[in-house]
Design a protein around this nucleic acid. Structure first.
Length: 581
DNA sequence: GGCCTGACTTGTAAACACATGC
DNA sequence: GCATGTGTTTACAAGTCAGGCC
């Protein structure tokens, strides 16, 4: 509650300051409203009441529909079995989806080809279906070439032509990109409906290549307030439904045809609604900080419970806490085979009594979210090791490691330890704690701004490694490293020359330049296969970074770009240099 | 308790825009 | 003025988790 009051008073303080600036008058009202609502959020946090109302008024223009299909020019032909075939517009459009992807490796995959061909044939006319029976006889090369040329043309457009497109895009943004929520103009996150195409999926997805159908107005549900101006559907069409549900935050929804799951149009992260939710998330993680010692004591006790399910739960929470694993909900067979903590199978771990001079080592090897490989060798407590041996006894490799628990049960237990606590809170808590600790450790007075930034990135990297945020090494990595090294070399040579000529000032300048380059080189090398963005945007309490910047006189722009500053505006406004997570 | 659905967050890749150096 | 490399933004897939139903 204390924090909450600080938050409110901070907002009021900001409001008072902003009052001085005419252009900020509207946002003052905005923040006052935010402060008022925060009070109710705090009550919610204490678990006293659940205020499910998200807005009082909501008005918008509805989603933007992608342009209709433009048929290919007559000289561009699809060939079947060596013969040109004029396809019906529907069939032709789907052929273009495939043709555009020919450069991608996945079009060579059997699953992709089969799914595509199967769905394509379903959309064909009777005659087309009768003729086109084998994908290997289909020749999309002309269509492919046509689109490659088109994209070249786009790249080679004149400045003026590009300007026209830019203006068109910003007009669209003006018209569809914002809504009016409780009287405030808020940016929408994804106002454009997803265009039709072929589903790709990540990893070995069984549905790759399937046709993602064009969304019609008749598929779309609109959510807005009753007394608002209801968005008009495209001419000749109607909406599936118009509803006025203020307990949800979305503006429009539809069912995607690949999995039959709903998709939504929602607000941009810079919006008040999302910002407050984000703030709440970090406050929950900070409450865990207060509680984590007793939770850790409890799960350690659980390791020796007489009940198998309690032992399993104890070990699972330990993994979630120690390794920042995701919860691991059950998945259907119609998606890639990936797992998280609760869905780990026996085959995903190997137990080593001794390994590389360490005792009781668990070797993890599995595909997690987005089919990113998690590989880690971790020494664990002896009792955990014993338990794991017990859990895998008499089981086959494809059996569940934790067969007596589910994410629902695990989260229920966590919630009993602390209201609002779920598995994912540990990730936020551990990520933010790691950043704070690393920043405290790695920053010293007297560092240059560049050195401080290297420290910051190293702290950020420690978190990314903990959360297993990997990326493919950039295609241009080797080349760009080489260029940087050449630059370092030439600066070195230049310095030496200046030294000979006794030009002290020049030597000093070059020395500074060299240091900057070397820092940049180290940073880039260390970052080769690590993605920093995900943790920065989703796991690290922005107040840690803001306070660090203020304390060490590092401009916030060095840490957060424009979009990130918009998203974290609340933190930038409310945090002073003394904030610690 | 298990299953299903809906709403919301988290995640990477690719497209795009822009700065930089020649 | 152009090519190139890099940072930013967008797209959309794939998670988490709560709640309702049987």
């Amino acid at each position: 509650m204390k924090t909450c009051l600080r938050f409110i008073s901070r907002f009021i303080y900001i409001s008072a300051e902003r009052n001085k600036v005419a252009s900020f008058v509207s946002s003052v009202r905005y923040y006052n409203a935010a402060a008022a609502k925060t009070l109710s959020d705090c009550r919610w946090e204490e678990g006293k009441s659940s205020d499910t109302q998200k807005w009082s008024s909501l008005e918008h223009k509805g989603p933007y529909f992608p342009p209709e299909y433009e048929p290919l020019p007559d000289n561009i032909c699809f060939n079947y079995d060596g013969q040109p075939v004029k396809l019906s517009p529907v069939t032709e459009e789907i052929a273009t989806f495939y043709a555009k992807m020919l450069d991608h490796e996945y079009t060579s995959k059997e699953v992709f080809q089969n799914n595509f061909f199967c769905d394509w044939r379903e959309e064909m006319t009777k005659e087309e279906r009768k003729l086109i029976k084998t994908l290997s006889k289909c020749d999309f090369s002309q269509i492919h070439k046509y689109f490659v040329e088109k994209s070249e043309e786009r790249k080679n457009m004149t400045k003026e032509e590009k300007q026209v497109l830019k203006e068109e895009a910003s007009r669209l943004m003006e018209e569809y990109g914002y809504c009016l929520l409780d009287g405030h103009r808020e940016k929408i996150g994804n106002f454009k409906l997803e265009p039709p195409g072929l589903f790709r999926g990540r990893g070995e997805h069984p549905k790759m290549g399937k046709l993602k159908k064009r969304i019609q107005p008749e598929d779309v549900t609109i959510n807005c307030s009753q007394d608002s101006k209801i968005p008009a559907p495209p001419a000749g069409h109607r909406w599936k439904r118009v509803q006025h549900d203020n307990t949800v935050t979305w503006l429009a929804s539809w069912l995607e045809n690949i999995h039959g799951r709903p998709k939504y149009i929602m607000l941009n992260p810079s919006s008040k609604l999302k910002g407050e939710k984000d703030w709440q998330k970090y406050e929950t993680a900070r409450r865990l900080k207060m509680k984590v010692d007793s939770i850790r004591k409890q799960y350690r006790r659980d390791w020796t419970s007489r009940e198998m399910k309690i032992r399993q739960r104890g070990v699972a929470i330990y993994f979630i806490d120690k390794l920042a694993l995701r919860a691991g909900n059950e998945k259907d067979d119609e998606s890639a085979d990936t797992v998280g903590c609760c869905s780990l199978r026996v085959e995903h771990i190997t137990l080593h009594r001794r390994l590389d001079a360490q005792e009781h080592v668990v070797e993890f090897d599995f595909l997690g979210k987005d089919s990113i490989r998690y590989y880690n060798k971790v020494p664990v407590e002896k009792q955990v090791f014993k338990n794991l041996k017990l859990f895998i006894k008499h089981k086959d490799p494809e059996d569940d490691l934790f067969d007596r628990i589910t994410t629902v049960k695990l989260n229920k237990t966590l919630n009993e330890s602390m209201p609002g606590l779920t598995a994912k809170v540990f990730r936020t808590f551990n990520a933010s704690t790691t950043l704070q600790d690393q920043l405290n450790k790695l920053t010293t007075e007297g560092m240059t701004v560049e050195e401080k930034i290297l420290s910051y990135n190293r702290a950020n990297r420690a978190v990314a490694i903990l959360c297993n945020h990997q990326r493919a090494a950039p295609k241009t990595f080797e080349r760009s490293m080489q260029l940087l090294q050449e630059k370092v070399q030439s600066t070195l040579t230049h310095s030496a020359l200046m030294l000979l000529e006794k030009k002290e000032k020049a030597v000093q300048r070059l020395g500074e330049q060299l240091k900057k380059l070397q820092l940049q080189e180290t940073d880039r090398e260390e970052n080769k296969v690590i993605a920093l963005g995900t943790s920065k945007l989703n796991y690290l309490d922005p107040r840690i970074s803001v306070a660090w910047c203020k304390k060490h006189q590092v401009p916030i722009e060095k840490i957060y770009n424009k979009t990130q500053r918009d998203k974290f505006a609340w933190a930038i406004d409310m945090t002073d240099e003394n904030f610690q997570f």
